[in-house]
Design a protein around this nucleic acid. Structure first.
Length: 260
DNA sequence: ATGGCGTACACCGTACGA
């Protein structure tokens, strides 16, 4: 089966690109971030017509996440982290059928954090703590689990086009990288790093400064798989094609293929 | 040190993203 995550940076702007991408790639499940839509505006009918059932959780202007499942069947839908008071729509989870038994899919839009030391950075840390503790219990009850989304963390220097300029900057601080490693310590694996990869693969490029043309980006969108899935992961890639569209999202989809 | 771009909301600029 094929799973993907994509920060679309406004689903209303990107819907035609998303529909084209679904048609061309036929993923089994997709996590979307930054839909920027209240729930009443979510384009479920268009996605249904394209063969995808959707679960969504949004708000006005900012954030907003969704899970698309080809064929539509999803159970145990959870919005945001239980017990963590949050005004912001950042997490959606569901259990879908897979060849090797039920698969728990968690889509997440981690806070940006803006600047180390800021209130938003402190929120990012608290949010990561809450997500991790919830994941610990999710992993105890769901052997096959995928956590995918926009983590807003570049885990290592090789995930940054200019690690010297970005040292200590947002997405590259020790605190954020420690949070990322703490997720791996739960028994999750970065699907992208299960494989030999070419250098300078990113998932986000700034709109400014011709960053995409110069391939100046960060790898901040990730797919983490549980221990029981690790041996079944066949490939993990970034699809740069949608970043070449007219009016692209600044993020590209990340795709994982899992034997089922 | 700033702004470079893009999106949303709504006002003709501001907040935010990364």
């Amino acid at each position: 089966m094929k799973l993907a995550t994509w920060n679309v940076n406004s689903l209303s702007v990107r819907l035609p690109q998303l529909l084209a991408w679904l048609e061309a790639n036929a993923p089994d499940a997709v996590a979307l971030q930054e839909t920027k839509l209240t729930d009443d505006k979510f384009p479920h009918a268009q996605l249904q017509a394209a063969g995808y059932g959707a679960q969504w959780f949004g708000q006005k202007t900012y954030n907003g996440v969704a899970l698309l499942v080809r064929g539509g069947a999803a159970a145990g839908v959870q919005r945001n982290v239980p017990g963590f008071q949050d005004e912001q729509a950042r997490v959606i989870a569901a259990t879908v059928a897979a060849g090797h038994g039920p698969l728990r899919v968690i889509g997440a839009y981690f806070p940006n954090g803006q600047e180390p030391g800021s209130d938003k950075f402190a929120y990012k840390m608290r949010w990561c703590d809450a997500l991790r503790e919830w994941l610990r219990s999710e992993l105890a009850t769901h052997e096959n689990l995928v956590l995918m989304g926009d983590f807003n963390v570049a885990p290592e220097d090789r995930d940054v086009f200019d690690p010297v300029a970005w040292a200590g900057q947002i997405h590259c601080t020790d605190e954020e990288r420690t949070q990322f490693r703490a997720l791996l310590e739960l028994g999750l694996h970065d699907a992208f790093r299960l494989f030999e990869q070419p250098p300078k693969v990113w998932s986000w490029w700034d709109y400014r400064n011709l960053a995409f043309r110069k391939n100046q980006g960060l790898r901040i969108d990730h797919i983490l798989v549980s221990e029981s899935l690790k041996a079944q992961v066949r490939a993990c890639t970034v699809d740069k094609a949608p970043r070449k569209n007219e009016r692209p999202s600044d993020h590209a989809p990340v795709v994982v293929e899992i034997d089922s």
